[in-house]
Each structure stands twice: as structure tokens, then as C-alpha cells.
């Protein structure tokens, strides 16, 4: 009979009326955030960073600004620079994560937070001090070592710079990050 399908439609909406809503009321409830989630912030480990600016070179938008000077600890080897500026212009960032992909020393991570709304555009630039002071809840995006640790940003504790290296991961052995890390460790122990 004509109209039967329309009655069926009414039935569908009625069953949905009985169902629990699938939306969540955001500030109070949150959906589960997955560990690879690329947040609107960055986690940066100064101890691991050599100031090579690979991230700045690989950024498709060129929004990372790095200014360095030779470090006193190992000026000749050139494997560690003193960072004066490390600005990330969040207002233009598209959170593609290529800077994280490019970092050979696992110093830069995508963050897991996303509530970065600001009233002024200039506040959206993450300065080096903010990067230093921020809670270290890195996203596991492009960091398989964090995934194999079963690390979950937000629920697990914040990670220190020693815990986040890619030990055993393919690029790590080839590059010289390990060597430099050994040096830092010795320094800390002394």
C-alpha cells in the first residue's frame, strides 16, 4: 500500500527517540581520545633537541622559527646548539605532524591537548618558554616506541626526556642521537 514506507520511516525515528543520544556534552563529557591524536600543541624535550632545525625545514608552511648559537658543552662537534628561539606559530599550523616525522632525535612530539583557544593571534605563537614549561604529554603520532610502551597520553603519567627515545627503532641506530644521549647521561650522573 502507498504510504507503508512512510509509516516505516516514522517507526525508525520513533525507535531512535527511545535510544540514548550518541552525542556527548563536550566540556563535561569527552569522547575517548586516541593515543595518536595530533593535538593542537607540541611537546618538546630540550634535552634531546640539537637545534638542527629539521622540523623547521620540513614544515610545509614554514611556521617554526629556530634561532641557535653554538653550545659551550660541545662546540666543535657541532652536535648540540644552544636554542635561543623556538617559536611555533599555531595560528597557521595545520597539525600535519611532518615536523615530528622529520625530527631525527625524537625531541619534538605532537601534544595531546587541544584546548588552545586564545583571544589574540599573538598568543597563539608557542614560545620556547611555553614549550619548556608545558606538561609533557606527547602524542604517539609517528613515535612507535611510545606505542610499544603502551603509553596513553592523558591517562599515563607525563613522560621525561629519557623515556621517549626510539631505542631499537630503525633510524635511531643510524643517526647519532644515541651517542649524544650517552654524553648527557654521564653529565647528569656526575
Amino acid at each position: 500500500m502507498y504510504g507503508l514506507e512512510m509509516a516505516k520511516g516514522l517507526l525508525v525515528t520513533l525507535t531512535n527517540l527511545m535510544r540514548k543520544p550518541f552525542t556527548v556534552a563536550y566540556p563535561e563529557q569527552r569522547v575517548r581520545q586516541h593515543p595518536r591524536f595530533r593535538g593542537e600543541e607540541f611537546t618538546w624535550y630540550e634535552e634531546r633537541c640539537t637545534g638542527c632545525a629539521s622540523c623547521a625545514k620540513y614544515c610545509p608552511l614554514g611556521i617554526i622559527k629556530i634561532v641557535t648559537s653554538p653550545s659551550e658543552t660541545a662546540p666543535l662537534q657541532g652536535d648540540k646548539y644552544l636554542l635561543e628561539t623556538f617559536d611555533i606559530e599555531l595560528q597557521r599550523c595545520m597539525f600535519c605532524g611532518l615536523c615530528v616525522e622529520a625530527c631525527p632525535y625524537d625531541a619534538l612530539f605532537m601534544g595531546s591537548g587541544f584546548e588552545e583557544g586564545q583571544y589574540r593571534r599573538t598568543d597563539l605563537v608557542i614560545s620556547i618558554d611555553r614549550l619548556r614549561q608545558a606538561d609533557k604529554n606527547p602524542s604517539t603520532w609517528f613515535r612507535p616506541q611510545l606505542e610499544s610502551m603502551d603509553y596513553r597520553p592523558g591517562t599515563s603519567r607525563p613522560l621525561g626526556w629519557r623515556d621517549v627515545g626510539r631505542e631499537g627503532w630503525r633510524w635511531h641506530q643510524r643517526e647519532k642521537a644515541g651517542m649524544r644521549l650517552q654524553g648527557r647521561n654521564a653529565e647528569d650522573d656526575a
Binding site: N16, L17, P21, F22, T23, A25
Partner: peptide, 13 residues
Amino acid sequence: RLLGRFQNRVGPN
């Protein structure tokens, strides 16, 4: 509110 529930969401709350 009712429309929201019909559409499986919450509506103004």
C-alpha cells in the same frame, strides 16, 4: 529537545 532526541542527539541542555 524532542527533535534532538528523534535525531539521536541531546538538544539544548
